[in-house]
Amino acid sequence: MSIQHFRVALIPFFAAFCLPVFAHPETLVKVKDAEDQLGARVGYIELDLNSGKILESFRPEERFPMMSTFKVLLCGAVLSRVDAGQEQLGRRIHYSQNDLVEYSPVTEKHLTDGMTVRELCSAAITMSDNTAANLLLTTIGGPKELTAFLHNMGDHVTRLDRWEPELNEAIPNDERDTTMPAAMATTLRKLLTGELLTLASRQQLIDWMEADKVAGPLLRSALPAGWFIADKSGAGERGSRGIIAALGPDGKPSRIVVIYTTGSQATMDERNRQIAEIGASLIKHW
Rank of each mutant, 00 (worst) to 15 (best):
F58R: 09
L188N: 02
K109A: 14
P12L: 11
S104T: 06
A266I: 06
A124C: 08
R81D: 05
M115V: 07
L49G: 05
E46N: 10
L218Q: 03
G216H: 08
N98H: 14
S51T: 14
A40T: 08
A200Q: 15
S51R: 07
S51P: 03
L89P: 07
D113K: 12
K71R: 01
T261N: 03
V257P: 00
L79G: 02
K144E: 15
G248R: 02
L120G: 02
L167Q: 04
E102R: 11
N152V: 10
G236Q: 02
H156P: 11
I45E: 04
M127N: 08
L150D: 01
V257T: 06
T179W: 00
H5R: 08
D161A: 06
G216R: 08
A40H: 04
T126F: 03
P60F: 10
D48T: 05
V72D: 00
A23W: 03
A235G: 11
V101G: 07
T147E: 09
E35P: 01
M268F: 11
M1L: 07
E164P: 01
W286V: 02
I259W: 03
G279C: 09
Q4N: 14
L49V: 13
E270T: 14
F22E: 15
I125A: 04
V101I: 12
V29D: 14
S128K: 00
A222Q: 14
K190Y: 12
G263I: 04
H5L: 09
S201I: 03
F70H: 07
D269L: 12
R202L: 05
N50R: 12
L205K: 00
D113N: 12
L223A: 10
A182P: 06
R273E: 14
Q4W: 08
I283E: 03
G263L: 06
R220G: 04
W208R: 01
L79A: 04
R189L: 10
A222F: 08
T27P: 06
K30F: 07
A133T: 11
D33N: 14
W286C: 01
A185Q: 01
K109Q: 14
Q265F: 13
E175S: 12
I283V: 12
L150I: 13
D113H: 11
E46V: 09
G242T: 02
S57P: 02
S68E: 00
F70V: 10
L120I: 06
T112C: 10
I275D: 00
P65G: 03
D174P: 04
R189K: 14
P224M: 04
S233G: 10
R159Q: 09
L247S: 02
A200P: 13
R91L: 05
D33G: 13
A222L: 07
V214F: 05
M180P: 03
A84Q: 13
T147M: 07
L247C: 07
N134H: 04
L19R: 08
I93W: 03
L79R: 01
E87D: 10
H24N: 15
P181T: 05
F149P: 01
Q4I: 10
A15W: 15
G43F: 01
N50V: 11
G236W: 01
M67P: 00
G236K: 01
E119G: 10
N130H: 00
R220Q: 04
R92F: 10
L38R: 06
Y260K: 00
E175Q: 14
G236I: 02
G76R: 00
K32F: 08
P249H: 07
R41G: 05
R176V: 06
I45S: 06
G114T: 04
S80V: 11
M67F: 04
E56H: 08
V257E: 02
D129G: 00
G114H: 05
E87L: 11
Q88E: 13
D99I: 09
E237M: 15
L100W: 05
L218V: 04
K232T: 01
Q203C: 02
D129Q: 00
R273Q: 10
E237T: 11
G76W: 05
A132T: 02
A133H: 01
L188F: 13
S201N: 09
S2K: 11
R59L: 04
L19I: 15
A246Q: 05
T178Y: 02
R220M: 03
A245L: 03
P143Y: 03
A84F: 09
T262D: 07
H156V: 11
T158R: 00
L137W: 04
Q86S: 15
V106S: 08
R176K: 14
M1Y: 01
L205H: 01
N272A: 05
E237A: 15
N152D: 15
Q86V: 14
T112N: 13
E175Y: 13
V21L: 07
V214N: 07
M268P: 07
I278G: 00
R271S: 09
E277K: 10
Y95S: 02
R91H: 09
Q4E: 14
V78R: 00
P249M: 08
A276Y: 10
D177C: 03
K252N: 11
T178N: 03
T112Q: 15
G216I: 06
F6Y: 10
C18F: 06
A124E: 01
Q203E: 15
L191F: 11
N130A: 03
T126C: 11
P165T: 10
F64Q: 02
V117I: 13
D83H: 04
L111S: 08
R176Y: 07
C121I: 05
Q37R: 13
A215T: 06
E277A: 11
R241G: 05
G236S: 07
F58I: 08
A276T: 10
F6S: 08
H94T: 14
C18R: 01
L10H: 06
A280R: 13
I206V: 14
P65L: 03
L111C: 10
R202K: 15
G90W: 11
D99S: 10
T186F: 15
V257A: 06
F228T: 07
K109C: 09
L38P: 07
R81N: 12
V82T: 09
E166P: 06
C18T: 14
L47I: 15
T107Y: 01
T158F: 07
T267P: 14
R7M: 05
K144G: 14
E87C: 07
K252G: 10
L196D: 11
Q265Y: 12
G39C: 11
L167N: 07
E145P: 09
E145D: 11
M66A: 07
I244V: 13
A245S: 10
F64Y: 06
P217W: 05
Q4L: 09
Q204H: 11
G52S: 07
F14Y: 09
T179D: 00
S264D: 04
A211Y: 08
D212M: 03
G142L: 01
E108C: 07
V106T: 07
L73Y: 06
V117A: 04
L136S: 02
M1F: 02
H110L: 08
L196G: 12
E169F: 12
L19Y: 15
G142Q: 04
A215H: 04
N168S: 08
W286T: 01
I45A: 12
M67S: 10
F228E: 04
E195Y: 07
F58L: 11
A133E: 00
I256Q: 01
D174L: 04
I278C: 04
Y103G: 06
L223E: 02
C75S: 07
R220L: 03
L160W: 02
K30D: 05
K213C: 12
C121N: 02
L146Q: 04
W208H: 03
L282C: 11
A225V: 14
L197Q: 05
S240N: 07
A266P: 04
E102L: 10
K213W: 06
L196K: 15
K30S: 10
K30W: 05
A245K: 00
T69H: 07
T27W: 02
S2Y: 12
D269W: 10
D212W: 02
Q37V: 15
M115I: 07
E270R: 11
R7C: 06
L120Q: 02
T112D: 15
V72A: 08
L223W: 03
M153L: 14
T147W: 04
G216S: 09
A280N: 13
V157D: 15
